[in-house]
Design a protein around this nucleic acid. Structure first.
Lengths: 352, 352
DNA sequence: CTGAAAGCGCTAACAG
DNA sequence: CTGTTAGCGCTTTCAG
């Protein structure tokens, strides 16, 4: 009998087949249940038994089969982070933090790129392959919270960034109005007279966008100035290149400004290039403020003054909220604003 | 009888429980097997039956349970991309391409950050949680191919970048020697007299490193110059900041050079900052060549001349090779070199 | 404290 | 062309 078992295990090893809970149980002379208890560090196992089982585990090199465990528990232990484009430094840095945070929560993170268009954003939410992940952390670009709330699926969701009314879905972000105000005020105080705002095409579609615009305008009004619509510079393709072109275009059209508040650092980097090509100096001719404080913001020439959201806090909160939903919390949507600060660098330095 | 089934389904819906293959089978009045066949688009189903089943599927909103399928087939449909740090633009861009390529192969990509240290690189390979992924694409930084070959686990692996002898494991990369030679020769032809090489600390540890150094030296020799060890500038912490500091240090020590070949674009970006702070102009005082052609290389000031590897080709080859291993291919290690080209930008422009 | 047995939802022979 | 049945490897009552 014993011989037969040994042979079985040998054959397995030869075939390179995985060692199962049962193989360990047989070697240790206990039931599967006991081995399972040992593996999962559950109580109710005599110390001596535990040791014996552990030896068997080591000898056989047993590793639990995640898939089987999932089928039995109904949990995948994976959460999805849906973001537009991992190549955008901010998202890469966000993902990096989220990886760490997920690990702390005993979860594995799956990145899904939405490309920022409506259809694939919807697709991500509508069919999160049945049971592939336990929950989703979602950074929307094109979808409004309202739309998202409508197609609430079985899978728990936490939203990043946005903060608009239908509060049925959890989300965590920064106070966009306040931060945009801080950024703009910084330009005002630095002495900029004409402050342009470089941002996405249609502020009515995206809520985040609308809020930052509001902050920008509020700051101007507080300084006793009336916002000037001609100073609103829309970017068609939301990357550095699109921003660069947008600035080139308005400069060619004769627009003049000495301060520029950018929707994000990549826009700022694009603007930097366009201004340089136009022979304008930063910060002497135009002072610039970005948003996100991506790593690269320290390496641009000149380095970039920017709004730095507390990404770590963002991730911690998102994962904590998501976890509670996964654990069955059914309450109404919760909303958290994390800190931010203004990091001042060369792009808004005072004239030497 | 029929009534009981309906009730069951209703109850399920109420409990928000998932619809199973069997539920569909009952509604359609066929066996599970047939439904399974329809779901997986297998032949051997009469057209009429297929339609009936499809209706049932739609009505119930059935979605296959990936986990159960996995357990039954032994395939997860996921592959892991293990890289040092997703925040490094090159890796983010690589991941982006790999996501697309994986999708084409019907696979889902899981990112794993190794942080580039030996222990966690080993950890990634040694215990790829039993059955989490079908295969691994691995971009090593600290581990040598030899070490990797030794701990070959049950999970198929394809290596990225490196190209060293123990050819038992598949890998795909670029011809580092040739590309480094191209880069260096470009600096020589531009008229640089003293060309420094900014690279990782210990070229003996990392093979890629060694090869690029070889290419650099070969180019110099071909130009009739003897490589000068003092022009080898080692970077301790492998990021832009580390590179920046390394350049600052050697400049402070009085090292002078008019050409700089960098291990990667982030090093080049760090160097750019250090040179700027030292009051040296690029390319007038120092011409620079980077490696990878990250998106940002177009936005630095000045923009960066760099070696652009064919990342798409890299991803395609890696996934194809991995897939064949997953499908059971047992042959010896295969090696593919993908194309590269030199992209010339401002950092090596000729003096105006 | 430990064991036996019944699933989790799907696939894969093997019959028919 | 379709149905039956036995797993995949683990967790989990429920007994003992």
């Amino acid at each position: 009998m014993m011989t037969t078992q040994m042979t079985d295990r040998r054959r397995k090893k030869a075939r390179n087949a995985a060692v199962r809970l049962q193989d360990v149980a047989e070697l240790a002379g206990v039931s599967v249940k006991t081995v399972s208890n040992v593996v999962r560090d559950q109580p109710n196992v005599r110390d001596e038994t535990r040791k014996r089982v552990q030896r068997a585990i080591d000898e056989l090199g047993y590793v639990p089969n995640v898939t089987a465990r999932r089928l039995a528990t109904g949990r995948t232990g994976m959460v999805e982070l849906a973001l537009p484009d991992i190549r955008a430094p901010y998202y890469a840095e966000l993902a990096d933090r989220m990886f760490d945070e997920a690990k702390k929560h005993g979860l594995r993170l799956l990145i899904e790129q939405t490309r920022g268009d409506l259809d694939s954003e919807r697709g991500t939410l509508v069919s999160p392959q049945q049971g592939l992940v336990d929950g989703i952390i979602f950074e929307p670009v094109s979808m409004s919270t309202t739309q998202i709330a409508l197609l609430q699926s079985r899978t728990p969701i936490v939203m990043l960034g946005d903060v608009t009314p239908p509060m049925s879905v959890d989300h965590v972000g920064v106070d966009n109005v306040a931060a945009a105000q801080t950024a703009t005020t910084h330009l005002v105080e630095r002495g900029c007279r004409r402050i342009a705002y470089l941002s996405n095409q249609d502020p009515n579609l995206i809520n985040t966008e609308r809020q930052r615009l509001l902050g920008y305008e509020t700051a101007l009004r507080n300084a006793g100035r009336e916002p000037d619509a001609s100073l609103y510079v829309p970017v068609t393709v939301p990357d550095a290149d699109g921003a660069s072109r947008a600035i080139e275009d308005v400069l060619a059209d004769g627009l003049r400004f000495d301060g520029l508040f950018c929707y994000n650092d990549m826009f700022a980097i694009g603007a930097l290039r366009a201004l340089r090509r136009a022979g304008l100096r930063v910060p002497d001719d135009v002072a610039i403020v970005g948003w996100n404080d991506i790593l690269m913001a320290q390496y641009t020439n000149p380095s970039l003054t920017t709004i730095a959201p507390d990404i770590k806090g963002l991730c911690e909160n998102a994962l904590t909220m998501l976890n509670s939903r996964i654990d069955g919390y059914q309450g109404i949507g919760r909303h958290v604003d994390v800190d931010y600060r203004l990091v001042v660098r060369e792009s808004t330095a005072h004239d030497a």
